[in-house]
């Protein structure tokens, strides 16, 4: 049994109602009073450290109701302690423990490939001109569990346009930081580090495709992929590459890490599809995290419930072959 010394206890979970109240209090500058306990103060201090150059207030972004689902989000506790982020360990509880000291400032993102504007950009450069918004998205893991998460970020399309991709740019390739010192999981070749993911250009430009910098109105915790990660809600979670340091525009379809690891199990598209099983388990149903022990599984929806918005991207494609 693993119990970190200063893990947030269930009693400290912020239910969504309280969280919205607290947002207001924070705006009034009463954050430390509201946060109360030591854990709260420590969390805020950590945020301040990583966010020194980015105004914390920016993360309390307005919700994009049109692109948000109505379901109640999972708790902050669940979202930040149940993570697949193999760079910090393969257990779901590893990242929240091993990523505590991870430094996300300074942070640079290298832009290259088939585009006119290239070079190394600081996170501040990247974030300065964009407007943050909150979007409540479903997240469906390939392991057949799911959550609902209030992300804070901006459309990837807004970022891409600034780099002026050329006509040869058919795909976007993302790379995670490679740093064996800070990311203990990279000391073992569980995957072919660094983690790589990719999107077809039209997927990358899709309005649902989100670059995430925060969750629950706060800066993104390290274990969730700080300081910059991708979220494509109609795809399995492993497409949502974390702690991005490189974005390249390429002509050929990139080889994403999980496809390299097990090509018969994980594909490039990784669209949520209840009719196409993973070879070792069914994808027809999922367990919503946060239910009771005896909660029923729910039926998995095509494209994770986003079929109306994204199905046209795959018109005429054989989704059994292009899994």
């Amino acid at each position: 049994m693993k119990r970190p010394d200063n893990r947030i206890r269930p009693s400290e979970i912020t239910p969504p109602e309280v969280y919205f109240d607290r947002r207001q209090m924070m705006a009034l500058g009463l954050a430390s009073l509201a946060a109360g306990g030591i854990a709260g103060r420590r969390a805020l201090a950590a945020e301040a450290g990583n966010a020194s150059t980015i105004l914390a207030a920016r993360y309390k972004a307005a919700r994009n109701t049109k692109l948000s689902i109505a379901s109640t989000p999972n708790t902050y506790e669940a979202i930040t302690t149940y993570n697949n982020f193999y760079e910090f360990g393969t257990d779901k509880s590893d990242p929240s423990q091993n990523a505590r000291e991870f430094r996300t400032t300074p942070w640079n993102v290298e832009i290259g490939g088939e585009c006119e504007v290239k070079g190394s950009f600081t996170l501040e450069d990247i974030l300065k001109p964009v407007t943050f918004e909150e979007r409540v998205y479903r997240l469906r893991c390939v392991e057949a569990w799911s959550m609902v998460i209030p992300w804070v970020g901006f459309p990837l399309a807004d970022l891409i346009k600034r780099f002026k991709p050329t006509s040869k740019a058919k795909h976007v390739e993302f790379t995670t930081l490679l740093d064996r010192q800070q990311m203990p999981g990279q000391r073992y070749r569980v995957l072919d580090w660094p983690y790589v993911e990719g999107l077809r250009m039209d997927e990358a430009m899709h309005p649902l495709t989100f670059m995430v910098v925060g969750v629950y109105g706060r800066i993104l915790p390290n274990q969730n992929g700080a300081p910059l990660r991708l979220v494509t809600p109609w795809k399995y979670g492993f497409k949502n590459i974390k702690s991005i340091v490189r974005i390249r525009f390429v002509e050929k379809q990139p080889l994403n890490s999980w496809q390299v690891a097990a090509p018969n199990e994980y594909g490039y598209y990784a669209n949520v599809n209840p009719k196409v099983d993973h070879p070792r388990w069914s994808q027809a149903t999922e367990r919503r995290i946060g239910g009771s022990l005896f909660a029923q599984r729910s039926a998995t929806e095509m494209f994770n419930g986003y079929a109306e918005q994204v199905a046209s991207l795959y018109a005429g494609m054989d989704l059994t072959r292009n899994f």
Partner: peptide, 21 residues
């Protein structure tokens, strides 16, 4: 004993976000 305690939240024991798993 740990699983039972965790399932019922006894003695502050928790089974994490996905107790079934």
């Amino acid at each position: 004993a740990r699983l039972v305690a965790g399932a019922f939240g006894i003695a502050g024991i928790s089974l994490g976000a996905d107790p079934v798993n």
